[in-house]
Design a protein around this nucleic acid. Structure first.
Lengths: 111, 111
DNA sequence: CTTAATACATAAGAGACCAATGTATTAGGG
DNA sequence: CCCTAATACATTGGTCTCTTATGTATTAAG
């Protein structure tokens, strides 16, 4: 019942913000961090995550670095400079969105 | 750059909440009220609005009443009892969503 | 008389995500 | 030892929601 439709459009913002805070992360780590921060409520699917990461990389907002741990390969992502700007922009957009929704839905701002 | 993607999934909530507050409204009135409440930032397109109204009606959350004003026909929508429950539910979902996003994005709750 | 606003509506398509599936390594319990 | 769960990457097909474009018709204003 935590409607999944509301999450649409938030994934890029989440990824960029986490990377802005953490410096670098790999895909699986992102899914776990989101799960942790949301108290288990928000579960990123790989079918959403990886295509988005690849898209952000193609747009030069992220760069990758492969690190081999034993026989397992991890792919770390970090923000480019453009990515850092984009992260800040997306966060602004999101807070504006929330404020607008508060007005439209007439929710007590204290909430 | 108020990203349109973030609005996905909010339309039903908005419609139900406005009807819960106003009692009854017609389609065009809803677009104007949203525009007014958002300070012109949020513009509902008819291609989104009418199919959604029809869908909510098909789900028995809304009932309609046609009113003729001169030669122009207005179609008023109001909530059924199920619609009132649904409106409250959607509002809960939305506030939960915002709280979850605050945690995930680590936004100052005061914001 | 032409444009903008009011008022309804549908159809084609795009965008973002989910579910399912696939490969492969590692750790733990029985 | 073997099976399962967790770790770690990735792609494909389908769904849902909205946007763009289009259509009809009335009314008000310049």
């Amino acid at each position: 019942m935590h409607s999944k439709e509301l999450l649409k459009g938030t994934l890029q913002t989440i990824i960029l913000k986490l990377l802005a805070d953490q410096g670098k992360m790999y895909g699986y780590e992102i899914t776990q961090r989101v799960k942790e921060l949301s108290g288990g409520e928000m579960l990123l699917t790989e079918g959403a995550l990886y295509p988005t990461l690849h898209k952000l990389e193609a747009e030069k907002l992220l760069t990758t670095e492969k690190v081999t741990m034993g026989k397992r390969v991890r792919k770390y992502y970090k923000l480019t400079e453009a990515g850092q700007s984009s992260a800040a922009e997306k966060m602004d957009e999101f807070t504006n969105f929330i404020q607008m929704m508060h007005r439209v839905l007439q929710i007590d701002p204290a909430f």
